[in-house]
């Protein structure tokens, strides 16, 4: 496979994953605005922080209210991480790697782009927002379904998956980092309305509120939430889950190619480290420090993959 194609696949799936996560973030913010209007503006601000977009948002003259944030996150072409920007980037990458995709996957991506381009052509009104968010989620599910259902399990698939999980790990870690202070045991003053709101946002943004309830019933201790989103091996958006997936896909790739590359060593070390940790140890050493290090390490991993498989050079 061409190095350029591998890079195109990797980025295509990163962008697709980012689109979905951004939509979830907008959904979480919207939900809070509906139910706890007294904290809404703070929440919108922190949602912009989670999307790592405060500077760009303020530069664009955005105010921390629902309509501004929603439109910035979903459809502002000046925001390189808005849903429409990343869907366009995903589709451009899909065109670049067209020969590596099944017809089903290509058509799903192309249709997604066509649909969302028209959905997001005009400012999204509050009444339409739930529909628009549902459409984004459905389109993401369509692409994922076509990918899992029709693609050969070879290097193409491995690069696609590595891109997906590197992006997901990054997004989840950022969500946690913005809210890390509400997850700290020290603020376990328990039960204040504000904390409940924060925890709900975190779970919802990770699409994890339902599975969390299944596992833990009515219990919402911050430590449990942190444990669930960082170290649970069954939760498909937890950090450890993502890293284990990447390790698996990089492992397949290297064994298919009969090579050993620094990216594989890197991810295996990261996986082993996470598997040995408990949530108490993480808290002891500092949640924020842990998350900062994780994001750096995950970024470095992406850099290794890019170099090891000659995306650009």
């Amino acid at each position: 496979m061409l190095g350029k194609t591998a890079g195109g696949l990797f980025w295509m799936y990163r962008y697709l994953e980012r689109a979905e996560n951004t939509a979830r973030l907008a959904d979480a913010g919207f939900r809070i605005a509906l139910t706890r209007s007294d904290h809404a503006d703070d929440e919108w601000a922190s949602i912009i922080d989670t999307a790592s977009a405060r500077a760009a948002f303020l530069e664009a003259g955005g105010k921390f209210d629902g309509p501004s944030v929603i439109n910035f996150l979903l459809r502002d072409p000046a925001n390189p991480s808005s849903v429409i920007s990343v869907i366009e980037a995903a589709r451009n990458n899909a065109r670049l790697v067209r020969t590596a995709l099944t017809r089903e996957v290509w058509e799903a991506v192309n249709e997604t782009w066509i649909t969302l381009k028209s959905e997001l052509a005009r400012p999204v009104r509050e009444t339409d927002l739930p529909d628009v968010l549902t459409r984004i989620r459905n389109q993401s599910a369509l692409v994922r379904g076509a990918t899992v259902g029709t693609m050969l399990r070879n290097d193409i698939y491995n690069f696609a998956r590595i891109g997906t999980f590197i992006e997901r790990a990054d997004n989840i870690a950022r969500i946690l980092d913005v809210k890390y202070y509400v997850l700290l045991p020290s603020v376990q003053l328990v039960g204040s309305t504000l904390d409940n709101v924060q925890w709900e946002t975190i779970l919802r943004a990770a699409s994890a509120e339902r599975s969390f309830r299944w596992l833990y019933g009515g219990e919402t201790r911050p430590l449990t939430i942190a444990d669930f989103l960082i170290l649970d091996r069954r939760m498909p958006r937890s950090l450890l889950y993502c890293i284990r997936k990447i390790a698996g896909n990089l492992g397949h790739l290297c064994s298919d190619y009969s090579v050993r590359r620094p990216s594989l060593d890197h991810v295996l070390a990261l996986r082993d480290e996470l598997e040995d940790l408990t949530i108490d140890q993480i808290m002891e050493r500092g949640l924020h420090e842990f998350l900062t290090r994780f994001i750096q390490s995950n970024n470095a991993l992406a850099g290794h993959v890019e170099e090891d498989f000659r995306f650009n050079r």
Binding site: M1, L2, G3, K4, A6, D155, Y257, V259, F309, R310
Partner: peptide, 15 residues
């Protein structure tokens, strides 16, 4: 994606 390598035209693959 291409360059001359040992008198042939070669493409840059992942390997």
């Amino acid at each position: 994606d291409l360059r001359v390598v040992d008198g042939r035209i070669a493409m840059r693959t992942t390997l």
